[in-house]
Nucleic acid binder design. Structure first.
Lengths: 157, 157
DNA sequence: CGGCGACGTGAAAACCATGTTCATTTAATA
DNA sequence: TATTAAATGAACATGGTTTTCACGTCGCCG
C-alpha cells in the first residue's frame, strides 16, 4: 500500500518536473485520497504523517500538477481550491456532496455538446467552461436538516 | 442617463433594505455598468467620481443584493467575485470574454434540464450548479494572439 | 565518480479579497 | 421632532495563496 509507482513518477517527469522527495510525497498522498482535498489539508496530512514538506511546496506542486493536467480542480463556496488526482485524460465534471465532500463524476456529455455548439451561436472562440455541481448525497440525507451533517468528511486519515 | 429611478429603489426596499445615499450610489453605478464588475473596481469608480462610500459598504451592499437576488455573481480565474445587475428574475448563465470582459447571457435551458435529471441519476438531493463560461469574443479575435488583448475592458468610465 | 549549474525548497513576509468590530451617523416611524 | 434600529466606515482581523531569497539537491556531463 502506498506505492508511488513508476507511473506516477513517470507522469510527473513527463511534465518536465524533477522527481524529489517532496513531490513524491505530495503525489503519493494525493493518490491515496479518493476525494477532493485542499492544499492546506493535504499539507496537514503530510506533516501529521511525520513528513517534512513545506506548505509552499505543496501549493507549488499542486499548481504544477494542475498545469500538467494531472489533477482536477474545483472551488468550494469560499473560493478555496480543491484537488483530485485525475483518473483519466478526459475533461470531467463532478457532483460534490455539500455535507461530506464525497465526489462523484457525472456524465456531462450533454453539456459538452451544448457548450461546443455555443461557439457558433455566439461568435466567441476558444470557449472554456467550468461547472460546479453540489448536492446532498444519499448517505447525508436521512435527517433532512440543512446545517448539521450526519457524516464526517470522507477521506479520513 | 444615470437615473436611479423608483424601480431600483423599490426593489431594494422590497428586499428589506433602507434607502441610503451609499446604497443608491452603488445601485446606480452598478446599473450603468453593462458588464460584470468587482467590488473593488466598483468602489474605485465611486470614489473616483467624487463620492464617499466605504469599501466595507460596497461589499455589504453587493452581498445583500446577491442575497436579494438582484445581481448575478460569477467568479473570475483568481476567485474574485464579479457582479452584474440582473435584468430578469430567472436563473441565468453568461459567456464572458477573457479579453474585454464583455458578457453575454446564453440560453442554457439544455443544461438546466440535464442538471434537473441528475438528481435521480445520482441519488443526490438539493442540487445546485454554477457554470462559468469564457471565450474570446468576435471583437477581440482579429489578431489571434493569446495574451495581448486588442480591446480595453468594457464599461469604461 | 565528482563537480557544477539549474531547478527545487521552505520560512517568513507580502498580497489581496473579504469579513468583523464598534463608535458614530442616519433613515424611517411614531 | 423624538426615538430607535439599521447603516456606515476606519481600522483591524482573516485566511488562502504567492513571492522572496538564501540554501539545498537533482541530474547531467566530462
Amino acid at each position: 500500500m502506498g506505492t508511488v509507482g513508476a507511473m506516477e513518477d513517470g507522469h510527473a517527469r513527463a511534465a518536465g518536473l524533477r522527481s524529489t522527495r517532496q513531490r513524491r510525497a505530495v503525489l503519493d498522498a494525493l493518490g491515496r485520497c479518493p476525494e477532493f482535498i485542499s492544499a492546506q489539508e493535504l499539507h496537514a496530512r503530510l506533516t501529521d504523517a511525520g513528513g517534512t514538506v513545506g506548505l509552499t511546496t505543496v501549493y507549488r506542486t499542486l499548481r504544477e500538477l494542475d498545469r500538467a493536467g494531472l489533477v482536477d480542480v474545483v472551488r468550494d463556496d469560499s473560493g478555496e481550491r480543491l484537488y483530485l488526482r485525475r483518473p483519466t485524460d478526459e475533461h470531467r465534471h463532478y457532483l460534490i456532496c455539500r455535507c461530506c465532500g464525497r465526489s462523484q463524476p457525472v456524465d456531462a456529455e450533454a453539456v459538452e455538446v451544448w457548450a461546443a455548439g455555443l461557439a457558433e451561436a455566439t461568435g466567441f472562440a476558444e470557449l472554456e467552461h467550468t461547472l460546479e455541481l453540489t448536492g446532498v448525497c444519499a448517505d447525508c440525507r436521512p435527517g433532512g436538516a440543512e446545517e448539521p451533517c450526519p457524516r464526517q468528511p470522507a477521506c479520513a486519515r
